[in-house]
Amino acid sequence: MTTLRVVIVDDHAMFRTGVRAEIDGPVDIVAEADDVDSAIAVITEAKPEVVLLDVHMPGGGGLEVMRRLHTRHPEIKFLALSVSDAAEDVIGIIRAGARGYVTKNISGPELLDAIGRVAAGDAVFSPRLAGFVLDAFAGTIEIAQVDEDLDRLTEREREVMRLIARGYAYKEVAKELFISIKTVETHVSSVLRKLQLSSRHELTRWANDRRLI
């Protein structure tokens, strides 16, 4: 397997240095950027396999980068990183096309694992993101018959999400449910797709209203 080419986009130099120190070697960090415009320039030029994208940064944040690049370069995978855990922004960036979300206190090996997964076309859900997803899709199971397929999670997907929220790694989820890791990955990718494509207005509303409940 060739080394993955990765670009780090984050406005905190200290964080970029830290990540570089932790993961450079196993992956090839080809460039860094610290705001939206430079990120666009750097990514278009370097054409990396994976971009580590900060959610909040000057020029409109990670969301703006996704909006400008994702349709033009669908082959570049984005992994969102954030320190904020604000549901509306996390869900927003996933819906814009990011393949996963992890918090910045993730360890080096875990981050490498996540980068590999994203590059392979799979989705990376942290326990927190799984919690958000369960929350966002909550309550639709009862009215399943009126909803479209995209607007609800299957019982199996829900189970997988719940185990991830409980802190299970993919491997442990597979063991728990007596399925293969590949099947777990398929379920998670399908949840990601639903999250991105579902037009449920409740979903966007949920993210907006979450703090007002």
Partner: peptide, 18 residues
């Protein structure tokens, strides 16, 4: 209605709203 952290991030252009 945003939390202080998000409001500040919005004002400084660190995030783009929906």
């Amino acid at each position: 209605d945003l939390s202080p952290g998000l409001e500040s991030a919005t004002r400084r252009g660190l995030r783009s709203g929906s």
